[in-house]
């Protein structure tokens, strides 16, 4: 058989180039270029009124040129590592809760009659039809001190003589909203995976003596690992960089990496340190993805 990939006709080569170059150019311009700018920015001094200090200064007594100052600062204060660790744990918790909540739902949709599945998937993605911020603000009302949920919880706590708690502006509120927003990103890849499973495999497992529990753990679950990996990636990475939800629903102590970075650019206007934080975040995310890919790749040999 002729290898079509290496022997493209000139017309086919032109088509390939025309189709692939716009997205390539887009990514180059808005992804790679800002990334490089950020790396450079992280090695410079902050400007006097925000922005960056010049590389070559007119007055040699002002700050200028390149420095490792921001990195020294980052590793010098334990608080930043702590915020990183906390963000990592919050992202992990969100991912796990999403997984535990999404799995039964995805399974239910995948095992429903074909004509009902589309409607159910539509219902899962329906929240995307309304604005993200509006949905977050809605949680402010739902978790507010006068909301039914708060009254119920505090009523119960009061009955046992425990002091009332505040649901809003707490790590709890942040976690609830993070799970709420990212749940569909876990459901969809899981459903896509589970829907492809051959039902004959479960019949076979049953025929060979496996009870319902064994059928799940020995057949369905291992076969759904690729879906779990992609769903987890889709939840974990955005949560790690999320700032809007902790900003709106979190208390003063609920700062995550995203808030810290946002603060550097918009609050203290320390661009170099903001860039450093961003780069550290990117490195963390890449490390996580690499780890997940390795973990997933080991099992994917047979798929």
């Amino acid at each position: 058989m002729r290898d079509n990939r290496s022997r493209l006709s000139p017309a086919a080569r032109l088509t390939k180039w025309l189709v692939s170059s716009p997205p390539f150019a887009f990514l180059l311009l808005f992804f790679v270029a800002p990334g490089i700018i950020m790396v450079f920015a992280s090695f410079r001094y902050p400007g006097e009124f925000g922005g960056l200090a010049p590389i070559i200064a007119a007055d040699p007594n002002t700050l200028h040129g390149f420095t490792l100052e921001t990195y020294r600062f980052f590793f010098g204060d334990f608080i930043y590592t702590e915020i990183f660790a906390k963000s990592f744990l919050v992202a992990l918790a969100t991912t796990l809760i999403c997984l535990i909540m999404a799995y039964p739902l995805a399974l239910l949709i995948a095992r429903s009659p074909k004509n009902r599945r589309d409607l159910m998937v539509l219902l899962v993605i329906l929240p995307f039809a309304s604005n993200f911020l509006i949905r977050i603000y809605a949680w402010m009302i739902l978790l507010g001190p006068q909301a039914a949920l708060s009254l119920l919880v505090n009523g119960l706590l009061g009955a046992f003589g425990v002091a009332p708690v505040r649901l809003l502006f707490s790590p709890f509120a942040v976690l609830v909203a993070l799970v709420y927003v990212h749940l569909p990103f876990m459901v969809l890849p899981l459903y896509t995976n589970l829907e492809k499973h051959d039902p004959a495999l479960l019949d076979a497992a049953r025929d060979l003596g496996a009870n319902a529990w064994q059928r799940f753990w020995r057949v369905t679950f291992p076969l759904s690992l690729p879906g779990i990996f992609s769903g987890s990636t889709l939840v974990f990475i955005p949560v790690l960089g999320m700032f809007a939800i902790p900003d709106i629903l979190g208390g003063t102590g609920d700062m995550l990496i995203g808030n810290l970075i946002k603060e550097q650019f918009l609050g203290t206007r320390d661009w170099p340190f903001g860039s450093t934080l961003s780069i550290m975040l990117t490195i963390t995310v890449l490390a996580c993805v690499w780890f997940a890919a390795r973990l997933g790749g080991r099992r994917r040999r047979h798929a």
Partner: peptide
Amino acid sequence: TPPEKRPVRTVFQSYALFPH
């Protein structure tokens, strides 16, 4: 007696081998 308890085994048309 449910299928998993019957001393009966099936060879399925698609074989239904566990791919993992």
